[in-house]
Amino acid sequence: MIDIMLFLCVLAGATWLVADGTTKLGYNWQWYRVPRYIFTFENGRFTAGPLLDGLKVTLEITGAGFVLSFTIGLVTALCRLSGSVLARVVSRAYLEIIRNTPLLVQLFFIYFVLSPIFDLSRFFSAVLALSLFEGAYASEIFRAGIVSIHKGQWEAAHSLGLSAWDSYRWIILPQAVRRVLPPLTSQAVSLVKDSALVSTIAVYDLTMRGQEIIAETYLAFELWFTIAAIYLTVTVALSSVVALMEKRIRVAT
C-alpha cells in the first residue's frame, strides 16, 4: 500500500516536472493532432495512418529478425560447442567482431558496402544487420542453456545409442530452450528496440515515419511520446506472451 502511494507520488512529481518544464518553454501541446497519424476512421472505413504503416514495417523486420537471429544464434552456439576446431574458430571470430563493433557501424557496413556488392534490398540489409547482431548475443544464451543441462542427460541419450544430432534434437535442446526462454525474451525485446536504428538507412519503420511527421508538423513532444508508447506496447505484449507460454510449459511437465 505504502509502495503504491510512493509510486503515485513519484509519478505525480515527474509529471509535474515535465509539465512545468514545458510551460516554461512555452510549448503548445496539440495532442488532438496526433490520432490522425495513427489511424483515421471515416464513414465506417478504417484507414491506417503513417505510424501504423511504420509499425507494420517494424514488425516485419523484427519478425524476420527473430527467425534469422535465433537460427544464427543456435547454429553459432552448436559450432562453439562442436568438436571441430574450424567451426569453433569461425564462430568465435564472428562473435568477437559483432560484440566489439557498434551496431550502427555494422548496419552501415552491410548497407553501404555489402548490399551493392551482393545486390541486397534495403529491407533485407536491415534484417541481416539486426540478425547478425542479435544472433551473436542469442548464441551466448543458447550456449549457456546447453551447457547447463546435466551431463547425465547426455549419458542417458548416448547409452541408448542416440547420435549426437538426435541427442541435441530430442533431449538437450528442448530442455535448454525452455531454460533460456526468459533471457531469450529480453533478446527479442532488444531486437524490437534496436530495429529503430534501421531508420538511418531510410527503411520506413515506425521511427522513420515519426521523424517524417515531425519534420512536417513540429509536433516533436507529442509524437515521441506516442512512438515510445507504441514500442512499449509491442515489447510488453511480447514479454506477456512468452510469460504465458512459460507457464503453460511448466504446467505440462
Partner: peptide, 25 residues
C-alpha cells in the same frame, strides 16, 4: 545402462522416455 541418478528425460512422459530410442535408433 541404468544410472544411479536415473537420468530420465524430464521433458518427456514416461511412455515417450521409453519410446524415443526405439523409434530413433
Amino acid at each position: 545402462m541404468v544410472f544411479q541418478s536415473f537420468n530420465l528425460f524430464p521433458h518427456l512422459t514416461v511412455l515417450d522416455n521409453i519410446n524415443l530410442a526405439q523409434i530413433l535408433v
